[in-house]
Design a protein around this nucleic acid. Structure first.
Length: 175
DNA sequence: TATTCCTGTCCTG
DNA sequence: CAGGACAGGAATA
C-alpha cells in the first residue's frame, strides 16, 4: 500500500467503443474522475494526461467493468446511475455540477435556471464556464443545459454528441 | 441589430 | 499581477 505524499493517488483508465465514439473512463480510489468522449482513442488519452499527468492505462477487470457500466448509461440513459464519482473543482464548480445532476434525464434546463437555483442569478456566464470545466461527461449531465432561446449552444465534446444524447434521453423518457 | 455590463474562472503575458 | 476569453443573458440605444 504505497502511502502517497503530495503526488495524487494514481488514476487508472481504459477506453471502450460506443455508439457515440470512443469513451475513456478514468478513476481514482474514490471513484470516476473523468469520462471523455471523442473520435479517436489517442486523442482522448492525450487529453486525459494533460489534465491528469499521473494517469496510467490499466487493463484491470475492475476498471473495465466500471467502463462498461458507463457505456450502459450512455446507451440507455434511463438505466440510471449510482456510480461513485470523484469530482475535482472549485466550490462554485461543485455547486454547479451538483445542480446538473438534479436535472432529470429527458429534460433540459437553461444556464439561467441553474444560476438561479444556486442563488446567483447573475452568474449565468460563470455557470457556462463551470460546465465546460467538467471532466465527467454524461454522468454529470452538462449536455442537459441549453440556452435560454432553446439552442444547444456549445458542448465540450461536440454539439452533435450533445444533440444525440438529448434525443436519446427524450426517446427513453417517452416510453 | 449592436453595444455594454455582469459573474466566476482560467489562460496568457 | 493585469487583461482577455468563455458553452449566457438582460438592459440599453
Amino acid at each position: 500500500m504505497p502511502a502517497n505524499s503530495h503526488s495524487a493517488s494514481p488514476i487508472r483508465f481504459t477506453t471502450v467503443p460506443s455508439s457515440l465514439g470512443v469513451v475513456l473512463v478514468a478513476c481514482s480510489a474514490r471513484g470516476i474522475g473523468a469520462v471523455l468522449l471523442g473520435d479517436e482513442r489517442v486523442e482522448l488519452e492525450q487529453e486525459l494526461v494533460r489534465r491528469f499527468p499521473n494517469a496510467v492505462r490499466s487493463d484491470d477487470p475492475e476498471i473495465a467493468a466500471l467502463a462498461r457500466r458507463v457505456v450502459d448509461v450512455i446507451e440507455s440513459p434511463s438505466h440510471g446511475d449510482d456510480l461513485p464519482l470523484d469530482l475535482q473543482g472549485t466550490a462554485f464548480q461543485r455547486e454547479v455540477w451538483e445542480a446538473l445532476r438534479a436535472i432529470p434525464a429527458g429534460t433540459t434546463a437553461t444556464y439561467a435556471e441553474i444560476a438561479e437555483r444556486l442563488g446567483r442569478p447573475a452568474a449565468v456566464r460563470a455557470v457556462g464556464q463551470a460546465c465546460g470545466a467538467n471532466n465527467v461527461a454524461v454522468l454529470v449531465p452538462c449536455h442537459r443545459v441549453v440556452r435560454g432561446d432553446g439552442s444547444l449552444s456549445g458542448y465540450r465534446w461536440g454539439v452533435e454528441r450533445k444533440r444525440a444524447l438529448l434525443q436519446r434521453e427524450r426517446t427513453e423518457r417517452a416510453r
